[in-house]
């Protein structure tokens, strides 16, 4: 039986896409991951998100006022809160409050408004903010908590707030006592001391594929990302080539030398790879615009991330990889311009 749909005559107007609706949908897609993060690592992440959002809106409002732009329109488009959310998701849950302040200053003022505001920024603002605080305050940016089920000390909300406000853990605890190495750190330091990856993976912080807890957070991020794909908010090229290049190259390295290279799925499910593939590298402003360009862009981010994890000075490299490929994006777009229909290439 043939189904009939009520269709009016042409022309058909597609539903309007606004910046506000796109940003809001990305934020919704991130929420399951945020909840999972709070489930595994405690309420710190929620406090960081709120702090970063507050600072982001503050800087956004002051920049708009200085530039004499309409406040209501740009503050209501949720681009600043999304930047803040992506930034806060990269922070250790107990980072002091001024980390968010500095990060958001660089993200909103330097990376976004000095380059001309929304739609004109060369670099992904959230990643600029994150990289600035990462290389400036390594001591605070490496203070990661172990998952709650392994932790000897589970902070209450009050303790979380006081740690973020003062920059010291409560009750005279030392940072070293409550923080631990992340899965990527563990693999890195074990390989550096001559251990096999399979030995390093015996540590309790590892789960089935990635880190305990981390892999579930990555799953929820991926679910939200798939929803965004289905909603056509992001295109498939960047996530597919980014994760694909990591899996393929990771597989090659793993088969060649399984002792010092983690399995490819371990790479995918640890660090910020899934978050980066669906939410950060897919930024429509600072990434590539052409479909073929996006393939190259995603692969580039994946390859650089893998290279930094393997040889770099930092355990994870998604943020650096995204910024480096942001620099390349205009050039890639230039060489991958789609052919105009009916004209020679």
């Amino acid at each position: 039986m043939i189904r009939h749909f009520d269709t009016g005559g042409a022309p058909h107007f597609p539903p309007q896409t606004t910046v506000r609706s796109v940003m809001l949908q990305v934020i919704y897609a991130l929420l399951p991951g945020v909840i999972a993060h709070a489930w595994f690592f405690g309420p710190g992440i929620v406090v960081q998100i709120l702090l970063a959002c507050g600072f982001a809106l503050l800087f956004e409002a002051s920049c708009l006022a200085i530039r004499r732009k309409p406040l209501k329109l740009f503050l209501g488009d949720f681009s600043a809160p999304l930047t803040a959310l992506l930034f806060a998701l990269c922070l250790p849950p107990l980072a002091p409050w001024w980390i968010a302040l500095v990060g958001m200053f660089f993200a909103i003022v330097i990376a976004k408004h000095l380059f001309g505001g929304l739609g004109h920024n060369l670099f992904n603002p959230a990643m600029v903010g994150y990289v600035v605080v990462l290389i400036s305050f390594p001591q605070f940016m490496t203070a990661w908590l172990p998952p709650l089920e392994l932790a000897s000390w589970a902070p209450t909300l009050g303790q979380v707030l006081s740690t973020i406000a003062t920059g010291h853990p409560p009750g005279g605890l030392a940072w070293d006592a409550i923080t631990g190495a992340t899965p990527l750190d563990t693999i890195r330091s074990s390989v550096a001391t001559g251990k096999m990856v399979s030995e390093a993976r015996q540590a309790p912080i590892f789960g089935d594929f990635g880190g305990l807890g981390w892999e579930w957070i990555a799953n929820w991020y991926a679910l939200g990302g798939l929803w965004l794909l289905w909603r056509r908010i992001i295109s498939w090229q960047i996530p597919v080539t980014m994760i694909g290049s990591v899996v393929l190259l990771g597989l090659a390295a793993y088969l060649a030398d399984p002792g010092s290279n983690p399995a490819p799925l371990q790479h995918v499910f640890s660090g910020a790879l899934v978050l980066g593939a669906f939410y950060i590298a897919t930024d429509p402003v600072s990434g590539c615009a052409s479909p073929r360009g996006r393939l190259i862009f995603g692969a580039g981010v994946g390859i650089i991330t893998l290279a930094i994890r393997r040889w770099g000075a930092y355990p994870d490299g998604v943020a650096f990889a995204v910024l480096l490929m942001n620099m390349m994006a205009p050039l890639i777009d230039r060489y991958t311009r789609p052919r105009i229909f009916g004209q020679p290439a």
Partner: peptide
């Protein structure tokens, strides 16, 4: 002051020069 390492590193020099020119 906890120190702001970026300002001491080469990228900080470039950013600061850009701000001075601005």
């Amino acid at each position: 002051y906890p120190g702001f390492l970026l300002a001491m590193l080469p990228p900080g020099a470039f950013i600061a020069l850009g701000l001075l020119m601005a």
